[in-house]
Design a protein around this nucleic acid. Sequence first.
DNA 1: CGTCTGAACGTTATGCTATAACATACGCCA
DNA 2: TGGCGTATGTTATAGCATAACGTTCAGACG
Lengths: 165, 165
Amino acid sequence: MPDPAPDPAIAFHAHDHAHCCGGLIAEAEAIAASRSVRLTPVRRRVLEILLEEHRALGAYDVLERLARDGFGNQPPVAYRALDFLVDQGLAHRVARLNAFMACTHPGHSHTPAVLICRLCRTVAEAPGSRVRAAIDAEAETAGFAVERTTVEVLGLCPACREGAR
Amino acid sequence: MPDPAPDPAIAFHAHDHAHCCGGLIAEAEAIAASRSVRLTPVRRRVLEILLEEHRALGAYDVLERLARDGFGNQPPVAYRALDFLVDQGLAHRVARLNAFMACTHPGHSHTPAVLICRLCRTVAEAPGSRVRAAIDAEAETAGFAVERTTVEVLGLCPACREGAR
DNA sequence: CGTCTGAACGTTATGCTATAACATACGCCA
DNA sequence: TGGCGTATGTTATAGCATAACGTTCAGACG
């Protein structure tokens, strides 16, 4: 499947964030329904928390916010919800940061490249198809069968790049 | 700089391992000397430990082996040596595994793609130039300035792929 | 030679990340 | 309505990483 057309790195652009969150929650609902899995209150709230900012949050950051809202305040509560979201492709784990981010275009089979701004910590997803193709080619040469890929890029987002001048 | 020519994913092939280790230690010595940094006994031993197998080792695994050899047995001892090796490009951190591996072709400026076999845990480096080019292209589109990349691939190495049939 | 200095190392203590294991509650449906 | 599978709550612990401080050591320089 090709990369989705619209706005790959939306996190880096000015946009109607309430609308972008609302839309993604609605998409998540639809996806969950179509797969007969349950987007329970905790899971939904965790997704909302991740969507509140385009930044990666640690599990304990999520947990703290959950606890404030009256959900359980022990680590497994957060980890289980996060694992669910990651399994369903509604969120991604950012290995480099030991943190999690909402997926901004769920429902597409994608192997995203995560762009992480080292100054403002904003994270965005770039289309990963071409990167993935390059990886597949190299793996092929080595006789290696690719199953999952992690592509994470540390650098400066457009705004911080300007500011850093 | 292009990817080094010889044997990108040596870890997956039968090879004279003693020779490969010895050669890499010698290279490390030369690199350290040329940069006026010191490959001290602890650092050298940590590199040897990483080289003993083509697998990624956790810091505490390294530490345990260090302690056996009479070096300090507290975490900072291992982490400091590992950080040094990573800084000098003599080792890589594998974010996905929270672990470390020896670099099999140090001294080249490379952005490696790490191939991780999910069955035997062997890790190898594939040339990352083409992958890096693809990343650069996507980042350019997003207006993002790339500084460092993490490319890690989980799957099956040639041997385990055979066995899995 | 002495001593100064900065790098490396040893040690204590602590913080952050993640999961095992078990108990409780809930939803579904036969 | 009783049974079953899924989800949640809770306790405890395991695994990964670093701050801070004191000591040691190698090399520079008078």
